[in-house]
Amino acid sequence: MRYMDDTAVMKRMTKRITFNKVWKTLFFLATMFALVTLAILLYRIVTQGIDYLNIDFLTNFASRFADKAGIKAALIGSLWLMAVVAPVSIILGVGTAIYLEEYAKKNRINDFIRMNISNLAGVPSIVFGLLGLTIFVRMMGLGKSILAAGLTMSLLILPVIIVAAQEAIRAVPNEQREASYGMGATKWQTILRVVLPAAIPGILTGSILALSRAIGETAPLVVIGIPVILQFLPNGLLSQFTALPMQIYDWAKRPQEAFQYVASAGILVLMTVLLLMNSIAIYIRNKFQKRY
């Protein structure tokens, strides 16, 4: 007596196996689509820009001659910008997250605040540019300075940092807090010595990714109207400056074809900075995660 009809089983199985294969291929193609796009983009930019990428490119100011043009002012300007954005946004962001997660009571007002922070994260960057132009540049009279642009950028990435920090703080098990209280620690001691150390990898990763966004963001800078043509380095927070994405945008608009290549070289510099920042984020995450 036979328990199974082999042919019938095989017939149904082949159908299922093909079905499975089709879906697998589809999902694989979906993944590859993004990767291939990235690869093509990288290939194009590298082949176009690599010839212009050398030490002179990093140490020269912008020039009307494509082969003399350099990115010094923009690179240093972007670093200055980050020097403002990083402390302002991280202090404010982590502070807000600690308040919302550890101190704030669950009531309507706090729910409203939480909801709006998430909403803010979705506001287009150009809107933050308009806000910065009105408040920092004009009302506070900071002008088109590093400080004004930095504060605007801080506002832009603040919601992202708050949400990331909130998630990280929420992920700390409640038992750890209770154990801390049980040992007689105060709330602040608990936050400082138990919650924050456990949450720091998540907070820093989120913050650095948010900073990477800020360094590549153009729209708010365009709205604020920071200059592109300048031949000096900033010497203080109220100094005029230009930033990497602005300089790249300006080159890409030039009529001379050679400037398209210079723009590609600029993109390579920006991407290197971005990759460095992201690697730091990964390094920090791995290093701290091992400890807890």
């Binding site: 912008a62 020039s63 009307r64 088109k144 920071i226 592109v228 043509i229 300048l230 031949q231 230009t242």
Partner: peptide
């Protein structure tokens, strides 16, 4: 203007000229 600024920086390096493109 970019060309002019570039040349001008050669003669007056301490004057900080910045020009936007809005």
């Amino acid at each position: 203007i970019e060309a002019v600024v570039e040349e001008y920086a050669g003669t007056q390096p301490d004057v900080k000229v910045s020009v936007g493109v809005s």
